[in-house]
């Protein structure tokens, strides 16, 4: 269907330029990651490039950190990973549950409400995170509440809302209102029509939103830096104290494994929710 966008045969300078720029973009996106991945398999003690020999030694060393009761296990790492996962799961759940009905309203009613709300929900993207972090901290401390893990969930939800909403609105825009009306005329309640007809059609947008929510929450550093406590700390905070104090191939191995965890989670979301309408 979309073959026409880039001509398959001929196309000359146009096709060449498109592919050249696309490759350049891909290179810029992935080069540092490729380098880091290569170096994490280095057999050497230090990070010289390219590695003279390759080995799995840093990965073996790193897996010892994750073993529950091993000699080299690091309880703080395990707790931080668990907290990060919990926070990300809550953030994804909350953000999608609130954005789906909002997207529905905005697209169906349109006009000024849509513009205003979209602007409002873009704000978290515009605010410099450093100052937002300190504001959240000052507010949390003045409230005198035992927030626990919600210290992080609440600001993270705000950060991901722009992404989740945009994706949901995007998906909602392409849903024909007649489908819904048809369901209602056949006797379904408006709520049933929404849940049974609209939500499944919005799926690709919801999944895209969830993927962004996951990535942003799981890797958020700046606000978390102000909000974490010694009891509620996340993987990026753990990584930060580690990378500032030393940089060796084992640090690179850990960061590469974190990337793999991210990817596994993204693919899991995709698999669980998408079925055939796979986004990725």
């Amino acid at each position: 269907m979309r073959v026409g966008i880039i001509p398959q045969q001929s196309g000359g300078s146009y096709k060449f330029t498109i592919y050249l720029l696309a490759s350049l973009g891909l290179l810029i996106a992935t080069l540092p990651v490729i380098i880091i991945a290569l170096m994490s398999f280095s057999a050497a003690e230090t990070t010289s490039f390219p590695p003279q020999a390759y080995s799995l030694r840093w990965y073996i060393k790193m897996f010892e950190l994750f073993q529950p009761n091993g000699e080299n296990s690091d309880a703080s790492l395990q707790i931080a990973l668990l907290t990060s996962l919990k926070v990300a799961a809550l953030v994804m759940l909350i953000a999608s549950v609130v954005c789906v009905p909002l997207a529905y309203v905005l697209v169906r009613s349109g006009g000024r409400l849509k513009n205003g709300m979209e602007l409002l929900f873009t704000l978290p993207l515009v605010f410099p995170l450093v100052i937002l972090g300190i504001a959240f901290l000052l507010i949390a401390e003045s409230l005198d509440l035992e927030l626990g893990i919600w210290r992080l969930v609440i600001p993270h939800v705000a950060l991901v809302l722009p992404f989740v909403l945009r994706n949901c609105v995007g998906a909602m825009s392409s849903i024909d209102i007649e489908l819904e009306q048809a369901a209602i005329s056949l006797g379904a309640s408006p709520l049933r029509a929404g849940v049974d007809i609209v939500v499944p059609l919005m799926k690709p947008g919801i999944i895209a939103g969830l993927v962004f929510a996951l990535i942003i929450s799981f890797n958020e550093f700046t606000i978390t830096y102000f909000m974490y406590t010694v009891d509620v700390t996340t993987l990026p905070i753990w990584m930060y104290s580690r990378t500032v104090s030393s940089l060796d191939p084992s640090t690179l191995a850990i960061s590469f494994v974190i990337v793999l965890i991210d990817l596994a989670l993204i693919l899991l979301i995709d698999k669980l929710l998408a079925g055939r309408n796979s986004l990725l």
């Binding site: 300190i134 901290l137 000052l138 401390e141 005198d144 830096y225 102000f226 406590t229 010694v230 700390t233 905070i237 930060y240 104290s241 104090s245």
Partner: peptide, 22 residues
């Protein structure tokens, strides 16, 4: 808790005022 430089520690301690967690 190993995070930050001296001035970052001071900023964080100031923000929490009289409710230190350390």
């Amino acid at each position: 808790d190993r995070t930050g430089s001296t001035s970052e520690m001071v900023a964080k301690l100031r923000a929490v005022g009289d409710k230190a967690q350390y």
